[in-house]
Simulated scan of single mutants.
Amino acid sequence: MDRAPGMSARLKLTLSYAGFLMLAGVLLLAAVGVFLLRQGWLQTNEAGAWKSNPVIDFVRGFAPTAAAVMVFLLVFGLLGGWVLSGRMLAPLARITSATRTAAKGSLSHRIRMPGRQDEFRELADAFDAMLARLEEHVAAQRRFAANASHELRTPLAISKSLVEVARSDPSHDTGEVLDRLEVVNARAIDLTEALLLLSRADQRSFTREQVDLSLMAEEATETLLPLAEKNGVTIETRGDITPVSGSPALLLQLTTNLVHNAIVHNLSAQGRVWVTTSAHRGTVRLTVENTGEMLTPHLVSTLTEPFQRGVERIHADQAGVGLGLAIVATITRAHDGALTLTPRDTGGLRITVELPAHPSPRS
């Protein structure tokens, strides 16, 4: 924004300091003058004679001294105010410099203001924290863009290769090429839809309604029950009524992704999945727990990154697009909730989604 030039904050503080000092000096000199004038008037009355006008004597004797004092106060106020305002505004100058550095694209710079806590240092610390979050967010966006480009390029490259093979070899089985193209295109469509869902949830462009999270969990479980039976996985569902405020479609997607992830990342035989909902004071929880391979805490901490896959999937026919838990994390964040991933001691994963409870109507 273009602004008209004006006085600097340092100059304003200097003039304010000098003006306040001058006003205090005037008031002090006025008080002294009135006192001296009163004393001279009383002494004249006690003597019983008017040798001269006491006001004129006061002006002649006191006015030059008062003027000298005011000049001294003006010079002292300007110099002192300039020095003091410079010292006070020095932290602000560092913050301004860091802001301009960040505006040029360098988010790694930090102010790291020394000294004890005050308003300027609190502002500097808040700015450093904001820069750290921005740097992390920008890095995540760059990784996401790179990974998304790679994931989208793969099916397109496969489709191109299949078309080239079909053109170069007319005797090649056309039905087989079409079947493979259908599979590749379906994966590309799934990936595109997942990216759109991720963007929609991140922008919070949805209407909030009262939703029972336990019903969402039951619906997701019933939908995925054939997949669980096919893969030899047993699902147990239990819990309380858990009303939340949010998007039914997104919350259903959240529970479906969690249950699907628990099924495909499970043991090759006799796998188990537990889906539990519970109500607490002010919050509700959805917990999805599954058996599976042993996971390290470091690996678990990366599973919500887009296109991040933990161990190899036991059921390879359910490849997915690597956005399941990333979508869960985004939907949870869009509903002002918290997502916790914890490796189980006996193998597998425990995922807990905690959301604000829908306020109950007053009776």
Results as ranks from 00 to 15, higher is better:
3 R>G: 00
13 L>G: 03
17 Y>K: 00
18 A>I: 01
19 G>D: 10
20 F>H: 14
21 L>Q: 13
25 G>D: 06
36 L>S: 12
50 W>Y: 11
50 W>K: 14
63 A>K: 13
65 T>K: 12
71 V>D: 05
72 F>N: 10
85 S>E: 05
101 T>S: 04
105 G>P: 09
109 H>Q: 14
111 I>V: 12
119 E>V: 08
121 R>W: 06
123 L>H: 02
123 L>W: 07
129 A>N: 04
134 L>V: 01
139 A>E: 15
142 R>C: 07
146 A>R: 08
160 K>S: 15
165 V>W: 05
175 G>S: 07
181 L>P: 05
182 E>H: 06
183 V>E: 13
185 N>F: 08
186 A>P: 09
198 L>P: 00
201 A>K: 03
204 R>L: 01
205 S>F: 14
208 R>V: 13
210 Q>Y: 05
220 A>Q: 05
221 T>N: 00
228 A>H: 09
230 K>P: 04
232 G>P: 10
238 R>E: 11
241 I>W: 01
251 L>N: 00
253 Q>T: 00
254 L>T: 03
268 S>W: 02
286 L>W: 07
307 F>T: 08
313 R>I: 00
316 A>C: 11
318 Q>H: 09
320 G>V: 07
329 A>T: 02
333 R>I: 01
338 A>G: 09
342 T>S: 13
342 T>G: 03
347 G>N: 10
348 G>K: 07
353 V>A: 06
358 H>I: 02
360 S>R: 08
